[in-house]
Amino acid sequence: MSSASPSPALPSTRPRTVLAPEDWRARARAHRERIARRTDPLVALRMRGEKHPVQDFLFGYYTHSPAALQRWHSGAGVVLADDDGTAAAAEAAELGTAPRGEWKHWRRVEAGEVPGVVLEGREVGGWTVDVPVFLADRASGAAFTRELLARTAQRAARLGCFGLHEWAMAYRSDVHGVRHSQLPLRLGAAGTDAVVEGSRIRCTHFDAFRFFAPEARGLNEGEDGVLPTREGMRDMEQPGCLHAGMDLYKWAYKLVPLVDSDLLADCFDLAWDIRRLDMEASPYDLTGVDDLSDGRGGYEAVRIEEPAGRAEYARRQREFAERGQALRIRLLAVLEGAG
């Protein structure tokens, strides 16, 4: 797969688009419905004191709550028309939250305050993302994210890891136990160890590598002999890594409300789909586990200990890398446009 370069910078992020109340409230509802199709079943499980062994990861390892994910943000450069504040008040009552004007990094725009904020031939007031305040509050985080995404986007995807990070985490489970204790190991402890010992482990992602069993860390080849570290993320992150693809969701929600909710939801969808493969290719037996949200039923093992399974893994990994690169470029465009 060829590497991609970041998109050119967007124009200034001063408000340049105005949405009528009925328009932006409809978009907000559509976003909530899109997210709820996946999060509501997980929330229902939690209410019963249960966890989903696959997709709960997206709200355990990642810190954005289902309620926060369901909040709709227009992104920078948009005014949500609401002259008298009634639309925001109605939204708050519907959501059971504070009005949008009290959400962090949002501000009021009065009619006539910003040139071009016009709806049906008249100047209007409303709500918009406070880009300067956001950038002041998140300067170091935004700079780190921009550099990480840009450097990752320009690297070629490496597709030879075959998801062995999950196997390395379960190595020597007779001594250390396993992270997903509610699931049995598909090949048992000895069979799992044999796969680890008979494979080349080439993990490049620190937040996977740090969970390796102690005895497995020395088996990791990393990238040309260089092992992943927190400090080395910007030098090693590459678009073929499943966890780098899932992490696009993290970078997106950390940039909310600068990032719009359509882009955030697209990153969440990618993370959801990647997590499916992450666990299907793992050493765990997912028999009887339901996906819950998309009508696909259960999970099918991707047997990476066999040639056919490795080919299947690499094929899907390549598709995810391509999806991830497109989202990475979109996130970079937001950061570049914000200045």
Results as ranks from 00 to 15, higher is better:
residue 229 T to V: 06
residue 297 G to N: 06
residue 121 G to Q: 05
residue 225 G to K: 10
residue 328 R to D: 06
residue 54 V to C: 05
residue 92 A to S: 11
residue 279 M to L: 15
residue 121 G to M: 06
residue 14 R to Y: 10
residue 30 A to Y: 07
residue 141 G to W: 09
residue 229 T to Q: 06
residue 188 G to E: 03
residue 77 G to W: 00
residue 290 D to E: 12
residue 338 A to I: 01
residue 190 A to T: 10
residue 26 A to V: 08
residue 268 F to T: 01
residue 169 M to I: 05
residue 114 V to Y: 02
residue 302 V to C: 08
residue 336 E to S: 14
residue 185 L to C: 02
residue 19 L to R: 01
residue 329 I to D: 11
residue 132 P to Q: 09
residue 75 G to R: 02
residue 80 L to R: 05
residue 175 V to T: 13
residue 51 K to A: 14
residue 304 I to K: 00
residue 89 A to N: 09
residue 282 S to K: 00
residue 336 E to Y: 09
residue 296 R to L: 15
residue 74 S to C: 14
residue 217 R to P: 04
residue 219 L to T: 03
residue 119 L to Q: 00
residue 179 R to F: 14
residue 141 G to V: 04
residue 220 N to P: 02
residue 289 V to P: 07
residue 196 V to G: 03
residue 148 L to Y: 12
residue 140 S to C: 12
residue 136 A to N: 08
residue 13 T to L: 12
residue 19 L to W: 04
residue 128 T to Y: 01
residue 158 R to S: 07
residue 106 W to K: 08
residue 107 R to V: 11
residue 219 L to Q: 06
residue 44 A to M: 09
residue 147 E to Q: 13
residue 217 R to Q: 13
residue 119 L to D: 01
residue 38 R to E: 13
residue 81 A to E: 09
residue 124 V to G: 00
residue 43 V to K: 08
residue 161 C to W: 04
residue 54 V to T: 07
residue 193 D to I: 03
residue 241 C to M: 07
residue 312 E to M: 12
residue 308 A to P: 05
residue 325 Q to Y: 11
residue 14 R to W: 09
residue 325 Q to H: 10
residue 7 S to E: 14
residue 281 A to I: 01
residue 26 A to P: 03
residue 267 C to N: 02
residue 188 G to Q: 00
residue 310 R to E: 08
residue 67 A to L: 12
residue 52 H to K: 12
residue 337 G to Q: 02
residue 320 F to K: 12
residue 248 L to K: 00
residue 218 G to P: 00
residue 125 G to F: 05
residue 76 A to H: 00
residue 27 R to D: 02
residue 295 G to W: 06
residue 87 A to Q: 03
residue 99 P to T: 07
residue 339 G to Y: 04
residue 43 V to M: 15
residue 236 M to L: 15
residue 239 P to L: 03
residue 217 R to K: 15
